[in-house]
């Protein structure tokens, strides 16, 4: 294994770890607010590390740029989505909710 391959493997594993963290969090955390917190780790870091791992091995700069564009698109849409989803959830939560608007 070359150094390049080793780096790629390490980065891919790091990505897989964050996806694992996100999925477990989504399943185990108690309420939507905490679950979305777990999910964003998969969106940002998980995909980010996978993209980095693939970029290390990419044969051309154009490909690295394309991977980067995909990551940025997912990043931007996921942060917007999180904001919209929680905005909706909170606007509709009853005011008497003991946890209150967080």
């Amino acid at each position: 294994m070359t150094l390049q391959e080793l780096a790629a493997a390490a980065l891919l594993f790091a990505g897989a770890f964050f996806f694992l963290a996100g999925a477990i969090g989504l399943l185990r955390f108690p309420d939507p607010c905490t679950r979305i917190h777990a999910l964003t780790k998969a969106d940002n870091l998980g995909l980010g590390f996978v993209v980095l791992g693939l970029a290390v091995e990419a044969p051309s700069v154009v490909l690295v740029a394309k991977l980067g564009v995909i990551w940025v698109l997912v990043l931007v849409s996921s942060s917007l989505s999180s904001q919209l989803i929680m905005g909706r959830a909170q606007a509709r939560a009853p005011r008497t909710d003991p946890r209150g608007p967080t």
Binding site: L26, A42, D43, V50, I85
Partner: peptide, 12 residues
């Protein structure tokens, strides 16, 4: 949220 996870996983 699950749909978001599936989307991101799908991309990866």
């Amino acid at each position: 949220l699950v749909i978001q996870l599936f989307g991101t996983c799908g991309v990866a």
